[in-house]
């Protein structure tokens, strides 16, 4: 029963979660903490903190963690909880994945359609704004904590744009810098 409930709840979140991972968190909190009492507010805060520290999309990490810890709390064994965590993770991706299958089909089909191609000409400059918006929405006090933060921010852009350093190398470099300077 709890498996069915978990699957349904995360499918629902995947369907209504517009606006990226952070927007999705409030939906997850509403379902997991307020409605179903699968975890406490404190646990949820810890969960968000852990999701931010581990690699991967925040929404996915939160779904995995919530699925796992909910089943452990309900008294299930570790292997069953891991299976449950896989289920909630997939449930979260399922609605948009179904839409993508349909969209991709039409995208390939209409690629040579005149109007579709004109529409895409109009969309491409917008993608610049979408990327900028993503960066801008993360430019806040949580990510920029002191005067070295903007320096690190600019250094990352220069390394990436000017010197074409691979993002993975930049991330590893930043981790080392953090260990040294903080």
């Amino acid at each position: 029963m709890i498996f069915y409930k978990l699957f349904w709840v995360f499918t629902k979140i995947g369907f209504w979660g517009f606006g990226g991972g952070y927007a999705m968190l409030s939906l997850i909190q509403e379902e997991v903490v307020d409605r179903n009492s699968w975890m406490t507010k404190q646990e949820f805060t810890d969960l968000v903190a852990i999701s931010q520290l581990t690699p991967g999309p925040i929404g996915i990490n939160t779904a995995t963690y919530a699925g796992y810890s909910t089943l452990i709390h309900a008294g299930y064994s570790h292997p069953i909880a891991i299976v449950g965590a896989g289920m909630t993770t997939i449930a979260l991706c399922l609605p948009s994945f179904a839409m993508i299958s349909v969209i991709s089909y039409f995208f390939l089909k209409f690629r040579s359609n005149r109007y579709f191609s004109l529409a895409m000409d109009g969309v491409r400059p917008i993608s610049l704004a979408l990327i900028a918006l993503a960066a801008l929405s993360l430019t806040n006090g949580d990510n920029f904590i002191d005067y070295t933060s903007p320096i690190l921010f600019i250094t990352a852009i220069v390394c990436s744009v000017r010197f074409k350093v691979h993002p993975i190398l930049i991330l590893l470099g930043a981790a080392l810098v953090g260990l040294v300077i903080y």
């Binding site: 993503a134 960066a135 949580d142 990510n143 993002p167």
Partner: peptide
């Protein structure tokens, strides 16, 4: 150690997300 690493990583990640603006 985790706290230290992430203090430096966070603004760098924002920079990496902003960088593709230029390539776009």
């Amino acid at each position: 150690y985790v706290v230290k690493v992430f203090k430096a990583l966070r603004p760098v990640v924002v920079g990496l997300i902003a960088a593709p603006c230029y390539t776009a």
